[in-house]
Design a protein around this nucleic acid. Structure first.
Length: 445
RNA sequence: GUGGCUGUAGCUCAGUUGGUUAGAGCAUCGGAUUGUGGUUCCGAGGGUCGGGGGUUCGAAUCCCCUCAGCCACCCCA
């Protein structure tokens, strides 16, 4: 019988322990950060009725949805983000939950697009949102959460770019271009990539506006420099439009609040050119890029939306949230060499040295686990060298070697695998304290 | 979805204008070393040359299709 070729689908991948260990750790960090701000966990089904998924979003996102007919003949789709399911969820449950409602959701999503470095068809998003309030405090908090997330994940050099769509909307209103908002935003978003001239040309043709108008829009985006000077120049650039003015004030407020809540000003950048493609953002928007790896794109993006669940309920639900791209971040850490090498989650290795002492090894390991120290026993009584080699490669911190000599002395040998240094430590099954202390010291180093 | 580049051992790659049994380094396994691992030496295993089809006396090498990876567009985490 011919073998079936083992393979994974395009854009999908397996995760080996060496990747899965840091991946799980990252999810744990994200979870702890979210919880520390009072966000509560929720979960929703992978599959939704197709109509739920396709209602919002653009044609492009509709095109990327994995869709099929289920065994009962229903049209269903796999979620392509966590925001649309949240909207449905909120419309269904906000009555019992009450507002403001803060939730986080860490789960995989699926998009049928062409993969590239840092882009997959299946990837995990870590979303957090606050819905049911328009308070600027929620906006500020979102920035603080992003900062804390990346900090806790071990990043130091990153930039959170901030903008407020209202500023641009106000400017466009002043130019009588309110109906062209979407194509203008799309084009504007490319400024950093394709440059001033091309953006101008494209804006004129795609959005069907005059060169004069395009120049005014681009003047806004060209507003560069430190935050204070940008805030100073913006009112003039927007022609003192009233709506734009409130947007500027709001952005300023967010900026100051973020600094007050401990986000270093060096990590914040007011960038009036970022737009974000998704149409549902209506207020502040943000993107986060790694200073050492800008090419990988935004690793955490989000913003404020006026009416999250308008498609599913008449209740007005404003909110703000962002999404951390965990798998993209993981790919970045891989490239930057930030991933640890360990492929074992347990720090202590017990060599199966002598068959006669099998039950002693088992009891010793049980004692260590009881004390919260992860411990693995080698399954075969192979030669010691091979066992130690295995332990070293897997990245254990310490190995315990105990043969007849040790057991008769009521001691065991603790070997620090990185330094090859070994010490003998007193140990009896009823009195594991000295061994536990010794191991804790090694693990903490 | 469209276009470009790539695909040889677990990994990194070599393979001369198509020409005998497709190679190297690292890794793995065994031994030197029956109670102590990252060095050294000796030896071994491992490849349907991504897959399928075609041209040819003969294909890793040329052609077509397909799958996958990377890049650009699009979009985005």
């Amino acid at each position: 019988m011919p073998l079936i070729q083992p393979r994974t689908l395009k854009g999908f991948r397996d995760y080996l322990p060496s990747v899965m260990i840091p991946r799980e750790q990252m999810m744990g960090v994200a979870r702890d950060v979210f919880r520390s701000f009072g966000f509560a966990p929720i979960d929703t089904p992978v599959l939704e009725y197709l109509e739920i998924l396709t209602g919002k979003g653009s044609d492009e996102t509709d095109r990327q949805i994995y869709r099929f007919e289920d065994n009962g003949g229903r049209s269903v789709g796999m979620r392509f983000d966590l925001t649309v399911p949240l909207a449905r969820f909120a419309a269904q449950h906000i009555g019992t939950l009450g507002t403001p409602f803060k939730r986080y959701h860490i789960a995989p999503v699926w998009r049928g697009e062409n993969p590239q470095a840092g882009r997959y068809r299946e990837f995990v998003q870590c979303d957090f949102d606050t819905i049911g309030t328009e308070s600027v405090l929620a906006d500020i908090e979102a920035v603080a959460v992003i900062n804390r997330l990346l900090e806790q994940l071990g990043f130091d050099r990153f930039t959170i770019s901030l903008n407020n769509r209202v500023i641009l909307t106000g400017l466009l209103e002043g130019l009588s271009l309110a109906d062209r908002t979407v194509p203008i935003l799309r084009t504007l978003d490319k400024l950093a990539k394709i440059g001033f001239e091309k953006t101008k040309t494209e804006m004129c043709s795609v959005a069907e506006i005059s060169e004069e108008q395009a120049l005014k829009v681009l003047a806004l985006a060209g507003c560069d420099g430190d935050a204070d000077s940008i805030f100073e120049r913006l009112p003039e650039i927007t022609g003192n439009n009233e709506m734009a003015a409130t947007g500027i004030e709001r952005l300023k407020d967010i900026y100051q609040g973020a600094v007050a809540s401990g986000v270093p000003a060096t990590r914040l950048k007011v960038d009036v050119s970022i737009a974000r493609g998704l149409d549902y953002y209506t207020g502040v928007i943000f993107e986060t890029t790694l200073d050492d790896l800008p090419a990988i794109g935004s690793v955490c993006s989000g913003g404020r939306y006026d009416n999250l669940a308008g498609l599913y309920t008449k209740q007005h639900l404003p909110g703000i949230g962002a999404s951390l791209g965990l798998d993209r971040l993981l790919a970045a850490m891989e490239q930057l060499g930030l991933l640890p090498n360990a492929s074992t989650p347990a720090p202590v290795f017990v060599a199966f040295f002598d068959r006669d002492y099998r039950d002693d090894y088992l009891q010793l390991a049980a004692n260590l686990r009881q004390a919260g120290i992860g411990t693995e026993i080698y399954p075969d009584a192979r030669k010691l060298g091979a066992q130690l080699k295995y332990a070293d490669q897997k990245g254990f911190t310490a190995a315990i070697v105990a043969g007849g000599n040790e057991w008769s002395e009521r001691r065991v040998q603790v070997k620090h695998l990185a330094t090859k240094e070994a010490v003998k430590v007193e140990y009896q099954h009823g009195q594991p304290e000295r061994l536990i202390n010794e191991l804790r010291n090694l693990i903490e180093q």
